[in-house]
Structures are given as C-alpha cells and as structure tokens.
C-alpha cells in the first residue's frame, strides 16, 4: 500500500487494515487499508459499482442490517475496533453519523426531525436544552434562518436542498465525531449543491467528513484527501480495490496509477 500516505501532521481518526466486504459470495471490497484523517474531508471516487457506498457503510456498521453482508479486517475509530464483540452500534452511530444520497426526512415536523437523535441518545435533561440543541444543529447546517418560523411544519414540505441540510442538521444534532455522506448532493440542483459543498467545508472545522461523490469537480472543491476505488474483480497484480489514496491535488494532478489518471481525465472530458 505504498500509495497510501498521509502528511505527518494529520491526526488519524479512522484506521482500516485489510478490510474485506462480501455480499453472500461476492466480494465488493477487497483488502482495503487506509487512514482517514481527523477534521478533514476525505472523498471516495470511482466508477459505479466499485464499492464506495459499501465501504462507507462499513465505517458505521450500517451494513449490519443487510442480509448476507460480511465484513472482515480491522477498522479502528480512535483506536477502538468498531467490529469488536460487545461494540454497541447505537453508540458507534452516535459517533459516526450518516447522510444519505436522497434526502430522507422523517414524516414529522422539522423540530422533531432534529430532536429525534438527541431523544434516543438522551442528550438533554430539560426541554430548553433540547430546544437549544435543535437550534444549534439547524444553525450548524445553515438552515436556521430559513426554518426558524416554521419548526412545527413537516420536514417533508421543504425543498430538496433544504431537506438535505435538514438531514445534515439531524446528523450533527447527536454531536458526532465523523459524518459519512453518500453522494449527498447528487439529487440536488447546482445552487443547492453549492450550498451543501460550502456547508461541508464549514463542518470540516469540527468534524471528520467522508464523502462519496461522482463529481470530480466536487471532490476537488471540497476534499482534502481523495481515495480512488476500482471494482472487484481486479487484475492479478492488484491485491486491493483501493487503487490510490492521497492528497486531492496529487490524486487529480499527478496520479500514480494509470487507471486513476484515465478515470480522472475521462471525467474532465
């Protein structure tokens, strides 16, 4: 894994070693090792079906709910193995939140959408504290000014971009360390996309962010680090489907692997 390198000043938040993920008998992720730096944005890119989402979902064990999905290898969050026996996914997911491709607010009010996480994790003692958390989270997601007068309206009544920011607010309301985002802007128009990207930038000051994207431009705009995946089955001499991982600038401007170069350039047209 010679390509995988981090600057010496990067603090490591998640470290993966030899991770394999299989659906029944099909290997979707093969032997991936990478370190995800703290308080930076890491982007996963690669052709469709190469396992980006799969790998992202292993980071907070969302794959546990999928029939036939098996994960081997080691993933450590701040030094603790998240697949260790006795690890409670409830606590893990409080630390590692997730935002999905399609905005999926609950069929409840805006307020309740954000309050749900704090409720199930018992993050407050009084109603005032909860109000406070909700307000901070909505501020954090840059949504407060738009919705502060209609917190009781259904979350599904917002525009697509607002809904996605509501989902981000919902994720940060439980005070996570890491936020995983699977193509968070792919269902949105350019203006809403721009807003989300700015938001990701801001959030990176406080959170470790991992984002899957199909847009090269987006990866370059928001990501500090970029990882390029390639689908299994691979050629003989590849022992992993993580082809390249490094600083975004380096991956896009001077890729080491030929396939990375083709993908990145092809994407530029």
């Amino acid at each position: 894994m010679s390509e995988i390198m981090l600057g010496s000043d990067d603090e490591i938040r998640i470290s993966c070693k030899g991770v394999n993920v299989a659906y029944w008998d099909n290997l979707a992720i093969k032997n991936v090792s990478m370190d995800i730096p703290s308080k930076q944005v890491t982007a996963f890119i690669g052709p469709s079906g190469c396992g980006k989402s799969t790998f992202l979902r292993t980071l907070n064990r969302m794959n546990d709910t999928i029939d036939g999905c098996r994960v081997t290898g080691e993933i450590k969050l701040d030094g603790s193995d998240i697949y260790a026996r006795g690890m409670d996914t409830v606590f893990l997911r409080q630390w590692v939140g997730m935002v999905f491709q399609k905005p999926n607010p609950f069929p409840k009010s805006i307020y309740e959408n954000v309050a749900y996480g704090p409720r199930i994790h018992g993050l407050f003692h009084t109603k005032a504290e909860l109000d406070d958390i909700v307000e901070q989270a909505l501020h954090g997601a840059g949504l407060w000014d738009e919705v502060k007068d209609r917190l009781r309206d259904p979350g599904t009544g917002l525009s697509g971009g607002q809904q996605q920011r509501l989902c981000i607010a919902r994720a940060i309301a439980v005070n996570p360390e890491v936020i995983l985002m699977d193509e968070p802007a792919s269902a949105l128009d350019p203006i809403a996309t721009r807003k989300i990207e700015e938001l990701i930038h801001t959030l990176a000051q406080n959170y470790t962010i991992v984002i899957v994207t199909h847009s090269m431009a987006q990866a370059q705009r928001v990501a500090d680090k970029t990882a390029f995946f390639y689908a299994v089955p691979l050629t003989e001499d590849d022992d992993s489907n993580l082809i390249e991982f490094g600083d975004t600038k380096q991956v896009f401007e001077s890729p080491i692997d030929e396939r990375t170069r083709q993908y990145v350039e092809g994407a530029f047209g």
Binding site: N60, M62, T65, T89, V90, F91, L92, R93, Q94, G97, M98, V99, F100, K102, N104, P105, F106, P107, Y116, G117, I120, H121, C167, R170, A171, V174
Partner: peptide, 27 residues
C-alpha cells in the same frame, strides 16, 4: 413503508426496534 425512514433512523443510532416503533409503525 419507504425503507429510507428506517435507514435514516438507524443511521442516527436508533435500534431496529426504535426505528420500528417511532417511524415504521406510525406510518
């Protein structure tokens, strides 16, 4: 019931039963 509610709740750290009682069943 759309799977997205369940997924969103699980992503927030709800257990499957919590997702069930709070979203799937009411819906």
């Amino acid at each position: 019931v759309p799977g997205s509610f369940r997924e969103a709740a699980l992503g927030l750290g709800a257990s499957r039963q919590q997702a069930m009682w709070s979203f799937v069943l009411p819906y």
